[in-house]
Computed example of a mutant assay.
Amino acid sequence: MCELLTVKGDENIPIEWIFHYAKLLEEYGFAGFGWGVAWKNENGEIKRYRAVEGIKNDNLAPQTLRGIQSKEYLVHLRKPSLMKSIAYYNSQPYLNYETSFAFAHNGYFIHHEQHRAYFAEQLEGTSDSEVGYQYYLKKLKDQFGPQVSLELTHQELGGKANLMVLRKEAGSLLYAGNDDNRMYMFNLEGIQCAATSLHSQDDFIFQTIFPTASNIQQIPLFTSCELTAAQKAPFSFKECSMEQK
């Protein structure tokens, strides 16, 4: 029951802007049991902050993250599928050793236990999402492309999966595979955004949280694509791949 948000701007965006929208997504969604944010620093490296509290109850974040500005962010707001998995190391996004990308998942991988033993030495937490993250890493090491690796991760682990990857030297990747929580891409006053829809099958997210959004496009299910800079024309999915399950 998590929510995801990623943004990309032509100019630096203060993290307070991110706090504002992340708090609204948490308030109107089901999250509040951990959260995290990743961003690119001035050198393009990926930095990360995460907490076991929800963003509204995280008193450390405003002081710790004060002054951060970046053109790109990725936010994960957590509501675990298994409540006993509430723990710091189960908070997302995950960050690879080279700090070249951050990975976040919304949904539940129903076959995660079948792969847990294989990744036992790499796992820090107990969530199904971290198994998905490690599987994605493995596909990349197996020389599959980043978008194909996202698709293969969902195909192998099953269940429902919205995925986002913030990358050091390329645009963020999006994968929509959760029909209970559709993912949308839109322009918000010159900032290109993608967000999940609060597990609501209507347009409430745009009526209440992003009322000034334009060029709203629902990402088709089982489709992966790259978040590009803000566009004047509606987004096209010609370069996205689609695998119907």
Rank of each mutant, 00 (worst) to 15 (best):
M1S: 08
R48A: 13
I68C: 07
Q155N: 14
L166R: 02
S81W: 02
I55T: 09
A120R: 09
G34F: 12
Y108H: 06
N12A: 11
Q69E: 00
I13Y: 04
L95S: 02
Y184L: 12
R48D: 09
S85P: 03
Y89C: 13
Q244G: 06
E243M: 09
G34C: 14
F237L: 13
A51L: 03
V75D: 03
E151S: 15
S241C: 14
M164N: 00
L5K: 10
S172A: 02
G190L: 02
T6Y: 00
A38D: 01
S81M: 13
L82Q: 13
A51K: 01
L163N: 04
N215T: 06
V75K: 04
N162T: 10
V148E: 13
E130D: 10
S172R: 00
N90D: 02
L166N: 00
W35V: 08
S91Q: 02
Q134L: 12
F186S: 01
K56I: 11
A230P: 06
H112S: 06
K138A: 05
K238D: 11
F101L: 09
A170F: 10
A213W: 13
K238Y: 07
A194E: 04
Q192H: 01
E169N: 02
Y135Q: 02
R167F: 11
F186E: 00
S224L: 05
A38C: 15
L221N: 03
G36D: 03
E226G: 07
Q218V: 04
K79F: 11
F210R: 14
F30C: 07
K245N: 13
Q114M: 03
E121Y: 03
I86S: 02
K56L: 14
K40D: 11
H105G: 04
G159E: 08
N90V: 11
A170P: 05
W35E: 07
E239Q: 15
N12H: 06
F206H: 14
F237Y: 03
H111E: 01
T6D: 02
A233S: 05
L157Q: 06
G177K: 04
Y118E: 05
V75I: 15
L25Y: 11
L137A: 02
R167A: 05
G107A: 05
I86T: 07
N178V: 15
L5R: 06
V148G: 02
G132S: 04
A170H: 08
K47N: 15
Y136R: 06
I110V: 03
N178P: 12
Y136I: 03
A161E: 06
S129F: 15
S214H: 01
L77F: 10
A61W: 05
F30I: 10
E130G: 05
S81D: 01
E169Y: 04
H112R: 06
N178C: 15
